[in-house]
Amino acid sequence: MMNFLDDDTKERKFHEENFPWKGIIGYIMSIVLTIFAFWFSLDHVSSLGPTLFVILALAVLQIFVQMFMFMHVTESDKGFPWQTFGLISGLIFVIAIVALSMWIMTFSSMAS
């Protein structure tokens, strides 16, 4: 189970293309996702609940576009790219802060 923890001696390989395909595809994807989010929400294509869900999902997809297309998130000079661990645990805590704070503080909007 914890084998990957010990996998920190292997040299990793980097990939760099001769033409910036990744960047261009990433840019197109981010633009398309954004236009879709604007159209879906501002043209009131659906009711409020599904709209919120869809535009949040699109925003989450944009994270992956930036991470993989621009930020080279899987690269590491040796062994496991530990930043992915940092980002995933960070994401857990981000969701905890936002969701649990909303839950805890709901009573105040019920009271007001």
């Binding site: 905890a96 649990l100 839950w103 009573f107």
Partner: peptide, 18 residues
Amino acid sequence: SYFVWAHHFFTMGAGAGV
């Protein structure tokens, strides 16, 4: 330890679920 913070203010009245 990241999921326990509200125990410092149980009496704030956030409700039974919380």
